[in-house]
Each structure stands twice: as structure tokens, then as C-alpha cells.
């Protein structure tokens, strides 16, 4: 069963010729009758499907449209053409710790972040101890978040995020969290997710991680889907592409 169906999706960005962000500038623009912006297609006719329980990788060079695609899957951006169908509860990790409030304690922040990820209070009550256990922050539950180090901050965010138990996870390069040991723990957790039959879409520059985790992948280049299939094949295509340009 496909849980994500991306059908001919295109995304256009407008690059303003001059920065025009006030009402006044817009009024002046109307009077002058200039062309307001250039168009830039960040994605063009991208189609693919992700099956339930699959770990799917998206790779490509900088500026190839990976993050744009992930944002469209996360419903943060709307496609200009085409359609995206998603069956299941999505949690997107485009950034960890979205909505964290420095002035509040870690415990309060866990509840806020969890509710952003779609959890109810009772659900959080249940996994509350596990979250701090996994993040190795049991002693610092009532500390204000502004006194956390950036490592602690990310560990708390990651730990909260993985305890939200979504059906589909959209992950953007967030595996680089904490020290070696914690990273191993994170990879193990993602492996566990896979075994539980959850779907993961992963965007990464780290080909090693992609090879290790993903069965199938998609290669984007200049907003077009260049290669789609088993990760080994797609990674080979990607390396060819890189060689071709240098």
C-alpha cells in the first residue's frame, strides 16, 4: 500500500527583481508597472510513491530541490501543479525543537513540542520519563531551556520527536545530533522504527547513512527526478552525475 503518492508535482518560486515587502513599495510598483519577479522552478514534474514501512531516501546536490520536496510533503509549501496524497499521521523533522521556548522549563517544552507534533497530554504523560531517559537529561527536567547547552537542546528535541510515534517521518539531515554514542542510539532507534513498519522519508548528503537505511531512493537534479529505484543504483547514478560535472 502506498502511503505517499506524489503525482507530477511542480513548485515555482518567485524571485523578486527588487525586494518589495511593504504596501508602499507595492503601490509604487503598480504605478511604475514593472515586472515584479522572475520565476524559478524548484521542482518540475516529480512523481514517485512510497510504500508503507519503507525507508525512502532523497539525494541530490545543493539546490536540487530536496528540501523543497520535503517541505511539500510536510504541507509547509503548496505545490503549484500536481498533487500529493498522504495516508497517515505525519511528523516532519525539518528542524528539531520547533516552538521551543527558552524561558520555560524543559518539562514544559516537551509538552509544547509534543503537542505541535500532534500528541495529546495523556500520551505525553505516558512517555514523559522515556523521553528524558533517552535524552539522558533526567536530572535537568526543571531547568529553564535557555540554560541548556545546544547539545542538550537537540537531544531533548530529538528524543521528544521520536516518542511522538508518527506513521510517517520526514527527516531532513537531523541525524547529526550529539556525540558519536548518541548518534549510534539515534540510528538504532530509526532502525527500530523501520522494523515496526513505520514509513520514513530521509533527505541526506551522507550517502553512507542513506545506503545503510534506505531500500529505495530518488535522485533530484535541478528540480527534476533523474533516477528512482534501489538505493545502490541511485547512489551510483548520483556519483556519475557528480563526476560528470567536475
Amino acid at each position: 500500500m502506498s502511503v505517499i503518492i506524489v503525482d507530477n508535482v511542480s513548485k515555482r518560486f518567485r524571485i523578486p527583481k527588487e525586494k518589495r515587502s511593504t504596501l508602499f513599495q507595492n503601490l509604487v510598483g503598480v504605478v511604475k508597472r514593472q515586472l515584479e519577479y522572475e520565476e524559478f522552478w524548484a521542482l518540475q514534474d516529480v512523481s514517485f510513491q512510497v510504500e508503507k514501512g519503507e525507508t525512502f531516501g532523497i539525494i541530490g546536490r545543493n539546490g536540487s530541490g530536496k528540501t523543497t520536496l520535503l517541505k511539500i510533503l510536510a504541507k509547509v509549501l503548496y505545490p503549484d501543479r500536481g498533487a500529493v496524497t498522504i495516508n497517515g499521521r505525519v511528523a516532519s523533522f525539518l528542524e528539531l525543537g520547533v516552538g521551543f521556548q527558552p524561558e520555560l522549563t524543559a518539562r514544559e517544552n516537551v509538552y509544547i513540542y509534543a503537542s505541535i507534533l500532534g500528541m495529546g497530554k495523556k500520551q505525553v504523560d505516558k512517555v514523559h520519563d522515556d523521553i528524558f531517559e533517552f535524552a539522558e537529561l533526567k536530572k535537568f527536567q526543571d531547568m529553564k531551556l535557555k540554560n541548556y547547552s545546544s547539545g542538550m537542546y537537540l537531544r531533548l528535541a530529538f528524543s521528544t520527536a521520536i516518542h511522538a510515534h508518527p506513521d510517517i517521518m520526514l527527516v531532513d539531515e537531523v541525524l547529526a545530533v550529539g556525540d558519536e554514542a548518541f548518534q549510534k542510539k539515534c540510528l538504532a532507534k530509526i532502525e527500530e522504527f523501520r522494523r515496526q513498519g513505520r514509513t520514513i522519508v530521509l533527505v541526506s548528503h551522507n550517502l553512507g547513512t542513506v545506503k545503510q537505511l534506505c531500500q529505495r531512493s530518488l535522485l533530484l537534479d535541478n528540480g527534476r527526478a533523474v533516477s528512482l529505484g534501489t538505493t545502490d543504483k541511485v547512489v551510483t547514478d548520483y556519483l556519475k552525475l557528480l563526476q560528470g560535472t567536475t
Binding site: 517541505k71 510536510a74 504541507k75 509547509v76 516532519s92 525539518l94 528542524e95 520547533v98 516552538g99 505541535i116
Partner: peptide, 11 residues
Amino acid sequence: GKPSLVTKVYI
């Protein structure tokens, strides 16, 4: 005032 709740996550 809350850009990350708009650009980084869907609510």
C-alpha cells in the same frame, strides 16, 4: 513572530 512554526512544521 513564530516563523519556525510556519516554515518548519505543518500546523
